[in-house]
Amino acid sequence: MNIKNVYILDDRAILYLNGEDTKEFLQNLISNDINKVNQNNSCFSSLLSPQGKFLYEFIIIKHKSGYIIDCEKSQVDGLYKQLSIYKLRSKVEILNLSNEFVVAAFSHEKFLTFEEAKDISGFTLKYREDPIFLDPRNKHLGARLIINLEKLYLSLKKLDLHDANMNEYYSFSHKLGIVPKDLNKLQNKLFGIECNYEELNGIDFKKGCYVGQENTARIKLKNKLSKRLLPINVVEGELNEGESIYYNDNEIGKVLIDKQYPFALIKYLDENFNEKANFNTKNAIIKIEKPNWIKS
């Protein structure tokens, strides 16, 4: 990413949770430890089904007396509804501020030019009153500013950042191996841990119970993780969601996201999985590359 580029992520949404029970409420639901979130640190997390399957993912940022949740806009209504169901009588207020606040992303290098910045994933600072944080999933994905829409362009001018095409940012995310969009296509299709959440700092295996914790911990402790969500590059042809992926007639995975930034659930430990090989679907030849931040 160019150090002067900024990407206005208008397909992101903002929820704000506030109230005296908010911290405990989130701690009992999310896959990460809410105690990691403070004025100087933000975290990546997910909300899973009771069976441990993927439902929603988001970044949590401490702001004033509550917490900002940065999520994909296509997921915000479902996430809002799910949180409201779990809320019951808890003293928690859930606000959808997506029409008032915007998410702007810029480079890792630009973030490090801030005087207080530290080169740590999730590190958070304030630009005036607005949070800026290095992406907690992977610092190479850059930083994000969450700001009121009315203040956005004046702040970007003062920061010497220039609006660039959002697709450039999402292409970089796909190349890095991190799903940029179309997350609803993953719902209930794979376990959260198969989304590489351990490597993306999205699961805390030392915290107490949360929704989906039992199966997540079992897969981890019994070394049952045999499939991972990995990016696809199309060599030729066309992908279709849900179709199988083959190597020499042996099925090694399934396409889950088929459009602009495709991903598949891959049996990455299978003897037929070779990162250097070409793979086939019904109508396409593809490449699959395991990101270098996945060590096993």
Rank of each mutant, 00 (worst) to 15 (best):
L83N: 06
D130A: 14
R137L: 11
K139Q: 07
P136L: 07
A104Q: 03
L125Q: 12
S74C: 04
S107W: 03
N99K: 10
H108R: 11
S107Y: 02
S121P: 00
K91Q: 14
F114L: 15
F133R: 02
S84R: 05
P131D: 08
S98P: 01
R137I: 02
S90Q: 07
V103Y: 00
D130F: 11
G78T: 11
T113A: 07
S107Q: 01
I120P: 14
E115D: 15
L97R: 14
T113N: 11
Y80G: 00
Y127D: 10
A104L: 10
D70I: 04
E72Y: 06
Y127E: 12
L141W: 01
L83F: 05
K118D: 13
C71T: 11
Y127V: 10
E72G: 04
N96I: 05
L141G: 02
K91G: 03
F106A: 08
A105H: 08
K118P: 05
K81G: 06
K91H: 08
E115Q: 15
P131Q: 01
Y127T: 12
E116R: 10
V92T: 03
K139E: 03
K81P: 04
K87L: 01
E115P: 00
D135G: 03
L95Q: 14
A117D: 08
K91E: 09
F106H: 04
E129H: 13
L83G: 00
L125G: 05
R137T: 01
F101M: 11
A117I: 09
F111H: 05
S90I: 00
I69D: 03
V76M: 03
L97A: 08
L125H: 05
T113Y: 10
D130V: 11
I85M: 15
I85A: 08
K118F: 12
A117S: 14
V76C: 02
I94R: 02
Q75Y: 01
G78S: 09
G78D: 02
R89A: 12
E72R: 05
E129A: 10
F106C: 09
V102R: 09
S84Q: 06
L97M: 15
F111Q: 06
E129G: 09
